[in-house]
């Protein structure tokens, strides 16, 4: 699968990794807002910081003048981070205005993103929101009073739906509404939820249920019933497995080990399954192919004679 990135995406990435002037890698000194999103476990993570030109009396008139990022992620994650910072600096927005810079704005700036990479732009928008919250806290701005309807801690609080990427029900429901996600594939592209083990797709309370709750129940394919396996019917052994194993241990200790030890070798019982005894020859015996074969026969014969003629010995 070759890269399907736009020229703008490739250019922003290469400029960033080469640290060209005008790029935004790093952290703002004494930032006014810090936001993080993602984690190294999930494959991408961003730490976003900005500085505002503070208004002397009205924090709502602060303007974002500098934005920087540190990003662990793929080509498009880094390009999305660059795009976010560039959009903010070009726009000279107030932090509240900056909230309109959503993932669609980042995708537009990049000249498009492959659908399976949309989550990279969502990460940028999420980190920005978190940073605006941080700014509001530092500047004593009450976002709720302004009608900004975002719950800053919903990421951490709430039932986890996608365990692979630690995404919660409130977060996923908000994203389903905000980004008009209609299918499980849409959700995965935008948030990564359900993109790994896929068990949350149709589990109770999983992604399909969230879609149904938000959009109303759609017609879906019937769910597969879990397959019932008949219980296995084992044969009844004459000796219990415990007694059988104990018997073998005792016979090897009494008849086999003493001889081997005289020659600087030893034998280990690796496993016993049904009538098969798996043994590992150690020390001097292990290196000698001929002796190994003879020993195997000797051990097998001993066990056959003294315990059960069905016993077989396999050297491991």
């Amino acid at each position: 699968m070759a890269w399907e990135y736009s020229d703008k995406t490739k250019e922003l990435f290469m400029n960033a990794v080469q640290g060209k002037p005008g790029t935004h890698l790093g952290e703002v000194q004494d930032p006014d807002g810090v936001g993080e999103h993602g984690s190294i476990v999930c494959g991408d993570a961003m730490r976003f910081t900005f500085r505002v030109e503070r208004h002397p009396t009205d924090p709502l008139q602060d303007r974002i003048v500098e934005a920087k990022y540190l990003t662990f992620g793929c080509t498009s994650a880094i390009a999305s981070s660059e795009a976010l910072c560039a959009i903010l600096e070009e726009g000279r927005y107030t932090p509240i205005e900056s909230l309109k810079v959503d993932n669609a704005a980042i995708v537009k700036y990049l000249g498009g993103l492959p659908s399976q990479k949309i989550h990279c732009s969502v990460m940028g928008a999420e980190a920005l929101q978190a940073a605006v919250f941080d700014w509001a806290r530092r500047r004593g701005v009450d976002l709720r009073e302004l009608g900004v309807d975002i719950l800053p801690h919903e990421q951490e609080e709430g039932r986890i739906v996608c365990k692979c990427f630690s995404l919660t029900e409130p977060y996923l429901k908000r994203k389903i509404r905000e980004l008009n996600l209609r299918t499980i594939q849409d959700i995965t592209n935008a948030t990564k939820a359900g993109g790994a083990c896929t068990t949350c797709h149709h589990a109770p309370g999983g992604l399909q249920d969230l879609l149904d709750e938000v959009w109303g129940r759609q017609e879906t394919a019937p769910r597969e019933a879990p397959t019932q396996r008949p219980p296995s019917v084992g044969e009844r052994p004459e000796l219990s497995p415990y007694q059988f194993a104990k018997g073998i241990e005792a016979l090897i200790e009494e008849y086999v080990r003493p001889g081997l030890r005289q020659d600087g070798g030893d034998v280990e019982i690796v496993d016993i399954k049904d009538w098969i005894v798996y043994v590992h020859l150690r020390g001097a015996c292990a290196g000698c192919v001929g002796a190994g074969m003879t020993l195997k026969m000797m051990i097998e014969q001993t066990l056959k004679d003294k315990l059960d003629e069905r016993i077989r010995v396999i050297a491991v």
């Binding site: 990794v17 080509t75 990479k117 990427f165």
Partner: peptide, 27 residues
């Protein structure tokens, strides 16, 4: 992350591959 390494290697004309999520087609 692996994909950013492959991308730069490719820019240098070097072909390699990665087991990173971003290059696997899944997540």
């Amino acid at each position: 992350e692996g994909e950013g390494m492959l991308f730069q290697l490719s820019a240098e004309g070097i072909c390699a591959s990665s087991g990173s999520a971003c290059t696997s087609g899944s997540l």
